[in-house]
Simulated scan of single mutants.
Amino acid sequence: MAHNSLYGVVDERIVNLTNLIILDLNSNQPSGNIPSNTGTPSSLKFMILHTNNLAGSLPQYLLNCTNLIELNLRFNNFEGVISMFNFSKFVHLSKIDLQRNYFTCIFPVSLYSCKSLRAIRLSFNDIEGQIQPEILSLKSLSFLSLGGTRLTNVTGAMKILMRCESFVALFFSYNFLGEEIPADGEMVEFNGFQNLQVLSISQLQFLRSLDPSFNNFSGDIPNQISNLINLERLDLSMNQLSGEIPTSITSLTFLASFNVSHNNLQGLIPKSTQLQGFDISAFEGNPKLCGAPLPMSAPERLVLMKMIRKPKTWRMNIIKFHGFMFLSVLGSFSDSGEFVVL
């Protein structure tokens, strides 16, 4: 019954459907509270009510739905202190999504007892507290989104979460406001995130050092990294990053240390006083990457040699090629392979 124009209050008799397995009313217009009768569809496995106008608190009879696999209530008007709700009864719960409601609480620690959890999204609720080491007991957890809450202690969170080898995506934007990541010996390293593909901590405006080197990160370097305006050290080496180095990185004016070596980057290195000032070792190990400060590659030298072979006349210009200045000759090759001056 998803994606219809259903509206009104959810009928209380729905709790009498004791054999109901899937309740999916997402993307409609129902309003009011979830029925609070003591009856309950105890066989319920999927409660998918997101993107509606539902309100009220989570009814306690949901605790009888011990077969629940997915609870998706995002984009509603639910409220209440969810830390008082005992999630530990949901031994089969794989996904919980309460994004953009009005829940308030310290992070509900009873979720740590849901050993089957693969995805937790509690973002944009009034949730506070710190990430606790108990989260390490969720061996299958791969997705965690807590953006737009009031979490604290980013250093402690990273030190704990980097030990979760199953993580694929972590979202912490609009958290840890005003915190500064410790530098030098206390700096949090990301070497433990063996499978992490997405890390969002964009509101860390005081971040001075970012080192996710020696991992399996893939894909393009995100442009959003330029939002870390105080960044002084960026080490993306020894990953599987591809695409070009984004020109937005040239706006990181405080960058004193930079390393993208041993990836699969390609194209021209963006021109800036800082990037061209770094050592060649910061870019090596990317066969398709070119431009200063890298030396001209063998194929580039070969093209240059062919261009100057047996010219009849010269039309000379001083041009720059990948940061090197040299004489150019305007011409082309004939079908026989000889150079023909234009």
Rank of each mutant, 00 (worst) to 15 (best):
S328P: 02
H92A: 14
N53W: 09
S173D: 07
L275F: 11
P295C: 02
L327Y: 09
D24P: 01
L255Q: 09
S110G: 03
S209A: 13
I318F: 10
S257I: 15
I34S: 00
L342C: 13
L71E: 10
L196Q: 04
F278W: 05
K312N: 15
G285I: 00
L25Q: 01
V109T: 14
R118E: 14
F326M: 11
L199W: 06
L151K: 01
N216C: 11
I308E: 08
P293V: 03
L122S: 05
N216A: 13
A2Y: 13
F167K: 00
C105V: 00
K139M: 11
H322S: 07
T40C: 15
D235W: 05
M1I: 14
M158N: 05
S257M: 11
K288A: 10
L54N: 01
D11E: 10
T273D: 14
L207M: 15
G285M: 01
L255G: 03
L330A: 12
F167S: 00
L234S: 07
T155C: 01
V198Q: 07
G147E: 11
R309I: 12
I221C: 09
N28R: 01
P299K: 01
S336H: 10
L44C: 04
G129A: 04
M325E: 11
H3L: 11
I280W: 08
N86I: 07
Q197A: 12
F107T: 00
L17Q: 05
I160G: 04
N33S: 15
G32L: 05
L151D: 00
E165D: 07
L117M: 03
P41V: 02
S242P: 07
N101R: 02
C105G: 06
G8H: 06
A282C: 10
S328T: 07
L111V: 05
N317I: 08
S173G: 10
I181E: 08
C290P: 00
S145V: 03
M1N: 13
S140R: 14
K139W: 04
S332G: 10
S213Y: 12
N259P: 04
P133S: 03
V81I: 15
L327A: 09
S5M: 06
P295F: 00
T149G: 01
N101S: 02
A119Y: 01
G8Q: 05
S272M: 04
M296S: 07
D335H: 15
S242N: 10
G129I: 01
S42A: 15
L210V: 06
S226W: 06
G32I: 03
S88D: 08
N28T: 03
I229G: 06
L20I: 03
S116L: 03
T155Y: 05
Y112H: 10
A2K: 15
F190R: 00
I96Y: 00
F333D: 09
N317S: 09
N195S: 13
S332M: 09
L117P: 01
S257W: 13
F46V: 12
N175I: 01
N191G: 15
L241M: 06
L268P: 06
Y174D: 08
F167L: 15
L330Y: 08
D335R: 09
I69V: 14
R208F: 06
I318M: 10
L252A: 04
S166F: 01
I318N: 11
S226G: 06
F124E: 07
I22M: 08
Q60G: 14
A2S: 15
G285A: 00
